[in-house]
Computed example of a mutant assay.
Amino acid sequence: MYVTFLGTSGAIPSAERNTSAILVRRSGERFLFDCGEGTQRQMMRYQTGFDVSHVFLTHLHGDHILGLPGLCQTWDFNDRESPLAVHTPPGTKPAIESLLGVAGTDPAYPVSVHEARPGSVVVRGEEYEIRAFRTNHRTQSVGYALIEDERKGRFDRETAEALGVPVGPKFGELHSGNSVELEDGTVVHPEQVVGPPRPGRRLVYTGDTRPTDVTVSEARDADLLIHDATFADDNAARAQQTHHATAREAADVASRAGAKRLALVHVSTRYGGAVDRLEHEAREAFDGETFVPDDGQEIEVPFPDE
């Protein structure tokens, strides 16, 4: 699983940072979380590929959605045929449908808009699900958690051979959870040669929000938490007033959740190139890896046991 940070600025873009957009690539699928103005150019610039199947919007402020009409139009110009699903907070479907029609034409490919109800699974894919959860911003808003299924335990080939299992199809049968009978009548069971199930990965993206207990719950043991960190401590009152979070507050959420890594995004332009201040304040509250990603930065999210 790879994450490319296409836009990490707050409400106003800067020369270094575009407005909010994050692309996640998992096993050949691409998901786009938020789509601020200029997102399609960021995708071109950082060569992420354009075959996105789902777009997940956290809320309807312009710095999170205004790139969507242009991106959809570009897909149309490029003769896209595959369907696109757009997920948006409850009560906002009509507004997004109007936004998609702002150019006055309907794309030739199917586009569907779905309201993401907090607490529900909005996408169920092969060995993963993407779930919406409630956040606390100035408008109707949700975050998203990409949660992979448990994986099979490791197959102990050495033990299997010691038990007399011949190399070949019976290995696969055992790894799939089926017992096998050997030529001498001995039955070998999966639990003799297959270890315990291994956890999949968990990635959580909050969008704009105050720190919440719900986020802590959704980010429990997350491999990567991407959290609003608009302000430093010097603007804590402003963060509360505007329903954003400080870097320290984001770090407290990560610490309470037991997350492994924390990416601080939606950075106010007032900090310019001084994002080390945000990182420093966050690291005082969270022992895990903490960073403010640059636009275009791509990171890998490994499996927990790797």
Results as ranks from 00 to 15, higher is better:
G258Q: 09
G125P: 11
E158G: 01
G272L: 11
G67W: 02
T230I: 02
H189M: 11
T212R: 04
A229S: 15
G28Y: 06
R45T: 15
Y2C: 00
G258Y: 07
T135Q: 00
G273Y: 05
G67I: 01
T58F: 00
A116E: 03
E126P: 00
P166H: 09
G185Y: 10
S217Y: 10
S98E: 13
V253C: 02
R17P: 08
A250R: 13
I12K: 10
R261F: 03
I147N: 04
P302I: 02
T19L: 01
I226Q: 05
P110R: 01
R210W: 05
E115R: 01
H64D: 04
K152M: 09
E97I: 07
R138Y: 11
N18T: 14
L57F: 08
A250S: 15
V86D: 04
T92K: 06
G207A: 07
A229P: 08
A282I: 12
D228L: 04
P13L: 04
E148H: 03
H266S: 15
A145K: 08
V111F: 04
P118Q: 11
F133V: 09
L203P: 08
G185L: 10
Q73R: 15
E161M: 08
A285F: 00
T242N: 14
D79P: 02
D276M: 00
G7E: 11
F5R: 06
G164D: 07
T92I: 00
T246N: 11
F171D: 13
N136A: 14
P107I: 08
E115K: 01
C72D: 03
A116D: 03
D213F: 00
E306S: 07
G200R: 07
L174H: 01
G164N: 07
G177T: 09
R198T: 07
D208I: 15
V194C: 11
E129A: 09
H280A: 14
P302F: 00
L6E: 10
E298L: 02
S20V: 06
D34G: 02
Q42V: 04
V55F: 07
G153A: 11
P107H: 05
L84I: 08
G207H: 11
K93Q: 12
